[in-house]
Design a binder for these strands. Structure first.
Length: 289
DNA sequence: AACCTTCCCTGATGGC
DNA sequence: TGCCATCAGGGAAGGT
Protein backbone atom coordinates (compact mmCIF):
# COMPACT_ATOMS: atom_id res chain seq x y z
CA UNK A 1 0.00 0.00 0.00
CA UNK A 2 1.67 3.14 -1.10
CA UNK A 3 2.25 5.40 1.89
CA UNK A 4 4.61 8.34 2.29
CA UNK A 5 7.85 6.40 1.64
CA UNK A 6 6.55 4.82 -1.53
CA UNK A 7 5.21 8.09 -2.91
CA UNK A 8 8.37 9.93 -1.90
CA UNK A 9 10.47 7.28 -3.63
CA UNK A 10 8.52 7.85 -6.81
CA UNK A 11 8.83 11.61 -6.44
CA UNK A 12 12.61 11.43 -6.10
CA UNK A 13 12.88 9.20 -9.13
CA UNK A 14 10.48 11.17 -11.30
CA UNK A 15 11.51 14.73 -10.44
CA UNK A 16 14.84 14.82 -12.29
CA UNK A 17 13.51 12.82 -15.20
CA UNK A 18 10.30 14.75 -15.74
CA UNK A 19 11.39 18.28 -14.96
CA UNK A 20 11.19 20.39 -18.09
CA UNK A 21 9.47 17.73 -20.17
CA UNK A 22 6.45 18.66 -22.21
CA UNK A 23 3.35 16.49 -22.18
CA UNK A 24 2.91 15.82 -25.88
CA UNK A 25 -0.30 13.85 -25.49
CA UNK A 26 -2.36 12.09 -22.88
CA UNK A 27 -4.49 9.03 -23.47
CA UNK A 28 -7.00 7.97 -20.84
CA UNK A 29 -8.95 4.75 -20.42
CA UNK A 30 -12.25 4.39 -18.60
CA UNK A 31 -11.62 4.17 -14.87
CA UNK A 32 -13.14 5.36 -11.64
CA UNK A 33 -9.84 7.00 -10.71
CA UNK A 34 -10.63 10.19 -12.60
CA UNK A 35 -12.06 12.96 -10.47
CA UNK A 36 -12.86 14.97 -13.57
CA UNK A 37 -13.93 14.36 -17.14
CA UNK A 38 -10.96 12.54 -18.71
CA UNK A 39 -11.47 14.48 -21.95
CA UNK A 40 -11.10 17.73 -20.03
CA UNK A 41 -7.95 16.40 -18.41
CA UNK A 42 -6.48 15.38 -21.75
CA UNK A 43 -7.14 18.79 -23.23
CA UNK A 44 -5.83 20.64 -20.18
CA UNK A 45 -2.46 18.94 -19.78
CA UNK A 46 -1.55 18.46 -23.41
CA UNK A 47 1.22 20.88 -24.35
CA UNK A 48 1.95 21.76 -20.74
CA UNK A 49 5.45 21.61 -19.29
CA UNK A 50 6.19 19.71 -16.09
CA UNK A 51 8.06 22.13 -13.86
CA UNK A 52 8.40 20.16 -10.64
CA UNK A 53 7.26 16.91 -9.10
CA UNK A 54 6.40 17.32 -5.43
CA UNK A 55 4.53 15.42 -2.76
CA UNK A 56 2.04 16.20 -0.03
CA UNK A 57 1.03 13.32 2.25
CA UNK A 58 0.42 10.45 -0.19
CA UNK A 59 -0.38 12.73 -3.12
CA UNK A 60 2.07 13.12 -5.99
CA UNK A 61 1.89 16.58 -7.54
CA UNK A 62 3.00 17.54 -11.03
CA UNK A 63 3.27 21.28 -11.30
CA UNK A 64 2.42 22.31 -14.85
CA UNK A 65 2.21 25.75 -16.47
CA UNK A 66 -1.37 26.32 -15.44
CA UNK A 67 -2.27 23.30 -13.35
CA UNK A 68 -1.48 21.08 -10.45
CA UNK A 69 -1.91 17.58 -11.81
CA UNK A 70 -2.30 15.21 -8.90
CA UNK A 71 -2.17 11.45 -8.62
CA UNK A 72 -2.97 9.37 -5.55
CA UNK A 73 -1.95 5.74 -5.83
CA UNK A 74 -4.66 4.40 -3.56
CA UNK A 75 -3.99 0.76 -2.77
CA UNK A 76 -2.67 -0.70 -5.98
CA UNK A 77 -1.64 2.28 -8.08
CA UNK A 78 1.52 1.96 -10.17
CA UNK A 79 3.26 4.83 -11.89
CA UNK A 80 5.97 3.81 -14.30
CA UNK A 81 8.24 5.82 -16.52
CA UNK A 82 9.50 4.21 -19.68
CA UNK A 83 12.51 5.61 -21.45
CA UNK A 84 11.21 4.69 -24.84
CA UNK A 85 8.14 6.06 -26.51
CA UNK A 86 5.33 3.52 -26.43
CA UNK A 87 5.97 0.89 -29.09
CA UNK A 88 3.06 0.27 -31.47
CA UNK A 89 3.11 3.02 -34.11
CA UNK A 90 2.73 5.97 -31.85
CA UNK A 91 -0.82 5.53 -30.65
CA UNK A 92 -0.82 5.31 -26.87
CA UNK A 93 -2.83 2.20 -26.28
CA UNK A 94 -3.16 0.24 -23.08
CA UNK A 95 -1.58 -2.76 -24.72
CA UNK A 96 -4.50 -4.95 -23.70
CA UNK A 97 -3.99 -4.27 -20.00
CA UNK A 98 -7.43 -3.29 -18.73
CA UNK A 99 -6.06 -1.75 -15.53
CA UNK A 100 -4.19 1.07 -17.21
CA UNK A 101 -5.87 4.40 -16.52
CA UNK A 102 -3.65 6.75 -18.47
CA UNK A 103 -0.59 6.98 -20.69
CA UNK A 104 1.23 10.27 -21.09
CA UNK A 105 3.73 10.71 -23.89
CA UNK A 106 6.40 13.22 -23.05
CA UNK A 107 8.95 15.16 -25.01
CA UNK A 108 12.20 13.44 -25.90
CA UNK A 109 10.56 10.04 -25.95
CA UNK A 110 9.48 9.19 -22.48
CA UNK A 111 6.22 7.59 -21.46
CA UNK A 112 4.50 7.88 -18.10
CA UNK A 113 1.89 5.26 -17.33
CA UNK A 114 -0.59 4.96 -14.48
CA UNK A 115 -2.11 1.58 -13.70
CA UNK A 116 -4.47 0.78 -10.85
CA UNK A 117 -6.07 -2.63 -10.43
CA UNK A 118 -8.39 -1.84 -7.54
CA UNK A 119 -9.15 1.72 -8.57
CA UNK A 120 -8.77 3.25 -5.14
CA UNK A 121 -6.35 5.71 -6.72
CA UNK A 122 -7.33 9.19 -7.84
CA UNK A 123 -6.35 11.53 -10.65
CA UNK A 124 -7.13 15.19 -10.02
CA UNK A 125 -6.48 18.55 -11.62
CA UNK A 126 -6.49 21.93 -9.91
CA UNK A 127 -5.88 25.33 -11.39
CA UNK A 128 -2.80 27.09 -10.05
CA UNK A 129 -4.87 30.26 -9.89
CA UNK A 130 -7.26 29.01 -7.24
CA UNK A 131 -6.85 28.50 -3.54
CA UNK A 132 -3.71 26.94 -2.18
CA UNK A 133 -3.31 23.27 -2.90
CA UNK A 134 -3.48 22.26 0.73
CA UNK A 135 -7.05 23.38 1.22
CA UNK A 136 -8.11 21.25 -1.73
CA UNK A 137 -6.41 18.08 -0.55
CA UNK A 138 -8.42 17.96 2.65
CA UNK A 139 -7.20 18.83 6.11
CA UNK A 140 -3.76 17.31 6.23
CA UNK A 141 -1.44 17.43 9.20
CA UNK A 142 2.24 18.32 8.96
CA UNK A 143 4.75 16.44 6.85
CA UNK A 144 6.66 14.17 9.25
CA UNK A 145 9.88 14.72 7.27
CA UNK A 146 9.36 18.47 7.07
CA UNK A 147 10.20 21.46 9.20
CA UNK A 148 6.64 22.02 10.42
CA UNK A 149 6.64 18.68 12.21
CA UNK A 150 6.78 19.92 15.78
CA UNK A 151 6.57 18.11 19.10
CA UNK A 152 4.34 20.62 20.85
CA UNK A 153 1.87 20.54 17.96
CA UNK A 154 1.89 16.73 18.00
CA UNK A 155 1.28 16.57 21.74
CA UNK A 156 -1.39 19.23 21.53
CA UNK A 157 -3.35 17.30 18.94
CA UNK A 158 -3.05 14.06 20.89
CA UNK A 159 -4.35 15.79 24.00
CA UNK A 160 -7.73 16.14 22.33
CA UNK A 161 -7.99 12.49 21.39
CA UNK A 162 -9.52 9.56 23.23
CA UNK A 163 -9.38 6.87 20.55
CA UNK A 164 -6.82 4.11 20.24
CA UNK A 165 -3.41 5.34 19.16
CA UNK A 166 -3.37 3.16 16.04
CA UNK A 167 -6.52 4.71 14.60
CA UNK A 168 -5.30 8.20 15.50
CA UNK A 169 -2.05 7.56 13.61
CA UNK A 170 -4.03 6.63 10.50
CA UNK A 171 -5.88 9.95 10.69
CA UNK A 172 -4.06 12.21 8.22
CA UNK A 173 -4.85 15.26 10.34
CA UNK A 174 -2.33 14.26 13.00
CA UNK A 175 0.59 13.42 10.72
CA UNK A 176 0.28 13.29 6.94
CA UNK A 177 1.38 10.25 4.98
CA UNK A 178 1.36 7.50 7.59
CA UNK A 179 -0.59 4.40 6.59
CA UNK A 180 -1.18 0.98 8.04
CA UNK A 181 2.29 -0.48 7.54
CA UNK A 182 4.30 2.41 8.96
CA UNK A 183 1.84 3.07 11.77
CA UNK A 184 2.46 -0.48 12.99
CA UNK A 185 6.21 -0.18 12.50
CA UNK A 186 6.44 3.16 14.32
CA UNK A 187 4.36 1.86 17.23
CA UNK A 188 6.66 -1.14 17.52
CA UNK A 189 9.77 1.00 17.50
CA UNK A 190 8.24 3.28 20.11
CA UNK A 191 7.19 0.31 22.25
CA UNK A 192 3.56 1.39 22.25
CA UNK A 193 0.70 -1.10 21.96
CA UNK A 194 -1.61 -0.12 19.05
CA UNK A 195 -4.79 -0.52 21.09
CA UNK A 196 -3.70 1.86 23.86
CA UNK A 197 -6.04 4.81 24.39
CA UNK A 198 -4.24 8.06 23.63
CA UNK A 199 -5.35 9.66 26.89
CA UNK A 200 -3.55 6.97 28.89
CA UNK A 201 -0.24 7.28 27.08
CA UNK A 202 2.61 8.67 29.15
CA UNK A 203 4.19 11.83 27.86
CA UNK A 204 7.50 10.08 27.22
CA UNK A 205 5.70 7.45 25.15
CA UNK A 206 4.14 10.13 22.99
CA UNK A 207 7.54 11.77 22.59
CA UNK A 208 9.06 8.46 21.52
CA UNK A 209 6.29 7.99 19.00
CA UNK A 210 6.82 11.51 17.68
CA UNK A 211 10.47 10.60 17.12
CA UNK A 212 10.05 7.12 15.70
CA UNK A 213 7.53 8.11 13.00
CA UNK A 214 10.03 10.08 10.87
CA UNK A 215 12.79 7.58 11.66
CA UNK A 216 10.79 4.68 10.26
CA UNK A 217 9.59 6.66 7.25
CA UNK A 218 13.03 7.95 6.39
CA UNK A 219 14.56 4.52 6.56
CA UNK A 220 11.82 3.15 4.33
CA UNK A 221 12.50 5.88 1.75
CA UNK A 222 16.17 4.88 1.86
CA UNK A 223 15.13 1.37 0.80
CA UNK A 224 12.77 2.53 -1.92
CA UNK A 225 9.61 1.72 0.02
CA UNK A 226 7.84 -1.53 0.84
CA UNK A 227 6.63 -3.91 -1.85
CA UNK A 228 4.27 -6.55 -0.53
CA UNK A 229 2.42 -7.13 -3.75
CA UNK A 230 1.52 -4.27 -6.03
CA UNK A 231 3.78 -1.31 -5.29
CA UNK A 232 6.48 -0.68 -7.87
CA UNK A 233 9.12 1.98 -8.27
CA UNK A 234 8.99 4.08 -11.42
CA UNK A 235 11.28 1.57 -13.11
CA UNK A 236 8.92 -1.30 -12.35
CA UNK A 237 11.30 -2.69 -9.73
CA UNK A 238 10.00 -3.52 -6.25
CA UNK A 239 11.03 -1.63 -3.12
CA UNK A 240 13.05 -3.50 -0.52
CA UNK A 241 11.92 -2.23 2.87
CA UNK A 242 9.70 -5.31 3.37
CA UNK A 243 12.90 -7.09 4.42
CA UNK A 244 13.15 -4.76 7.40
CA UNK A 245 9.57 -4.89 8.63
CA UNK A 246 9.50 -5.78 12.32
CA UNK A 247 5.81 -6.46 12.84
CA UNK A 248 3.66 -5.75 9.78
CA UNK A 249 2.59 -9.03 8.19
CA UNK A 250 4.73 -10.99 10.65
CA UNK A 251 1.94 -12.29 12.90
CA UNK A 252 2.77 -15.79 14.09
CA UNK A 253 6.50 -15.20 13.70
CA UNK A 254 8.96 -14.43 16.49
CA UNK A 255 9.81 -10.86 17.42
CA UNK A 256 13.28 -9.88 16.24
CA UNK A 257 13.97 -8.28 19.64
CA UNK A 258 12.56 -10.77 22.15
CA UNK A 259 11.32 -13.88 20.31
CA UNK A 260 7.74 -13.40 21.50
CA UNK A 261 5.19 -14.30 18.85
CA UNK A 262 3.94 -11.30 16.90
CA UNK A 263 0.19 -10.87 17.28
CA UNK A 264 -2.44 -9.38 15.03
CA UNK A 265 -5.69 -7.68 15.95
CA UNK A 266 -8.18 -5.47 14.14
CA UNK A 267 -8.35 -1.79 15.08
CA UNK A 268 -10.48 0.63 13.05
CA UNK A 269 -11.09 -2.14 10.51
CA UNK A 270 -7.35 -2.35 9.90
CA UNK A 271 -5.04 -5.23 10.64
CA UNK A 272 -2.68 -4.20 13.44
CA UNK A 273 0.49 -6.11 14.20
CA UNK A 274 2.45 -5.89 17.44
CA UNK A 275 4.79 -7.67 19.82
CA UNK A 276 2.95 -8.39 23.08
CA UNK A 277 6.18 -8.08 25.07
CA UNK A 278 7.87 -5.09 23.43
CA UNK A 279 4.53 -3.26 23.23
CA UNK A 280 2.77 -4.03 26.51
CA UNK A 281 -0.89 -3.17 26.99
CA UNK A 282 -0.05 -1.41 30.27
CA UNK A 283 2.82 1.06 30.25
CA UNK A 284 6.03 0.00 31.92
CA UNK A 285 8.20 2.48 33.82
CA UNK A 286 10.28 4.62 31.54
CA UNK A 287 13.45 2.79 30.50
CA UNK A 288 16.63 4.33 31.88
CA UNK A 289 18.37 4.25 28.52
C1' DA B 1 -15.34 17.95 16.75
C1' DA B 2 -14.31 13.25 17.50
C1' DC B 3 -15.35 8.78 16.62
C1' DC B 4 -17.06 4.79 14.32
C1' DT B 5 -18.94 2.10 10.44
C1' DT B 6 -19.72 1.28 5.70
C1' DC B 7 -18.46 1.42 1.07
C1' DC B 8 -15.70 1.17 -3.02
C1' DC B 9 -12.81 -2.50 -5.94
C1' DT B 10 -10.42 -6.90 -7.74
C1' DG B 11 -7.04 -10.54 -7.31
C1' DA B 12 -5.18 -13.92 -4.20
C1' DT B 13 -6.13 -17.40 -1.08
C1' DG B 14 -8.17 -21.23 1.39
C1' DG B 15 -11.80 -24.47 2.54
C1' DC B 16 -14.46 -28.14 0.77
C1' DT C 1 -10.42 -28.99 -10.57
C1' DG C 2 -13.96 -25.66 -9.51
C1' DC C 3 -16.73 -22.79 -6.72
C1' DC C 4 -17.53 -19.51 -3.26
C1' DA C 5 -16.48 -16.81 0.83
C1' DT C 6 -13.09 -14.03 2.81
C1' DC C 7 -9.44 -10.75 3.04
C1' DA C 8 -6.44 -6.69 1.92
C1' DG C 9 -7.07 -1.01 3.08
C1' DG C 10 -6.98 4.83 1.85
C1' DG C 11 -10.15 7.96 2.05
C1' DA C 12 -14.89 9.73 1.64
C1' DA C 13 -19.45 9.70 3.36
C1' DG C 14 -22.85 9.36 6.75
C1' DG C 15 -24.56 8.61 11.42
C1' DT C 16 -24.09 9.27 16.47
Amino acid sequence: MPELPEVETLRRELEPRLRGRVIRSLSTFPSRVFQLDPAVLEAAVTGQTIHTVSRRAKYLIFELDRWYWIIHLGMTGQLTLLDEPMENNGSSSSGGDTHIALVARLSRGRTLRFRDVRKFGRVMLFSRDGDGLDSRLGSLGPEPLGSDYLLEDFLGKLAQRKARIKSVLLDQKLVAGVGNIYADEALFKAGVHPARRVRYLRRWEKVRLFETIPQVLERAVLHGGTTLRDYRRSSGMPGTYQIWLQVYGRDGQPCTQCDSIIQKMVISQRGSHFCPYCQPRKPRPRPVA
